[in-house]
Amino acid sequence: MVVAAPPPATPVLEPVTALVAPSRTAPHGWTTYTVRDGDTLDGIAARHRTTVGALVARNHVRTPGLIHPGDRLSVPRTAAQAAQAAKAKAAAAGRVHVVRDGETMSGIAARYRVSLASLLKANHLSSRSLIHPGDRITVRGAGSAGSSSAKAAAGRPAATSRTHTVRSGDTLSGLAARYDTTVGDIARASRISSGSLLRVGQKLRIPVSAAHAVSDTFNGVKYPSSVVAAARRNHAILAKRSVPSRSEVRAIIVQTARRHGVDPRLALAVGSMESGWNQRAVSPANAVGVMQVIPSGGDWASSLVGRRLDLLDARDNITAGVVMLRALGRSAKNTEQAVGGYYQGLASVQKHGMYSDTKQYVKTIMRLRATM
């Protein structure tokens, strides 16, 4: 259907392009409008708060008196449309997180309240991929302070929480890092300001976010329900326990490694790589704690030290990892093969050689070792 516009009695093309500055008629940018039956250029211009001349110039309309249903015209955005587009663009682009020493993808996902799967996908990584200090990780879908998703998250109660009694030297940022949560979440749960000064003896509520729940799949492998159930039980126990801070874990690793004759820098590198020195880390395979020891590994380590080790206890967990490194070091032909055995299993390394991801794991451990 041909739609009539006002008679083109007055000059349109030359005077409009000469006199109209389209950018001034679209302070919020441009969007696309599809012409509908009955539309006219002056009606579309009025609806979008612009002029016929601006539309003609922007869309290179040769015959302003003729527009047809289905034609697509560039028209000025409203302020609301511009704001919505900006939010969509920001969400698509995401924010960038620069990896620090000891950080893991699961920890970064928890920090920004996004799923580990979506974080891995956004960065074209697998759950076995290694990250290094200085890497730039794109985080998509993390709500800003003013977004509706963030407000909804702020209003939701945490799945569980625990009480922390403030000790000398404690800070909100330090506690947030220790308990793998945020300053804002601790402040809200404790009903204090995020800028509050802490007092020794003060009781704080530490939320345990549902974002930390253990999934049932790792590296594309879905684990048996019994294994995942055990991992989730261990995760729930650790979520309510007091665990050492990263600085305390570091000291325990050094002390334990020296006691068992293992290079402390190697033990520190393995603990950093495996969990970021986080005793609350639990994988779907039920690898627990700082050194990410599975139950069968715990049994082996217990036999090596002559007593039952509790993998949920940070000191015992670190002891398990350290004595396993010591045993692997005695059986392997070199340190690199021992580290590969910690990741892949020494028998497998000796029989098949190191897999590609094992080689990358060993390379990263040796690089981290040099920085410890």
Rank of each mutant, 00 (worst) to 15 (best):
V3R: 14
P6D: 12
P22N: 03
T25E: 15
G43E: 11
A45F: 02
A45W: 03
A45Q: 08
G53M: 05
L55F: 04
G70W: 00
R72C: 04
K89G: 13
K89V: 15
G107K: 10
S126W: 00
H132R: 11
A142Q: 06
G143P: 12
R156S: 15
T160C: 09
T171P: 05
A176E: 02
D180H: 11
G195H: 06
I206W: 01
H212G: 15
V214Q: 08
P224C: 05
I237N: 12
K240V: 07
P244E: 05
S247W: 05
E248S: 08
A257P: 15
R258C: 03
H260E: 13
V270S: 06
V270H: 06
S272F: 01
E274Y: 00
S275A: 02
R280K: 05
P284R: 00
A287T: 08
A287M: 05
V288T: 10
V290R: 03
S303K: 10
L304F: 00
G306W: 04
L309E: 06
I318S: 04
I318V: 09
L325N: 08
L346T: 07
Q350I: 05
M354I: 04
M354N: 10
D357Y: 01
K359D: 07
Y361K: 08
A370E: 10
M372Y: 10
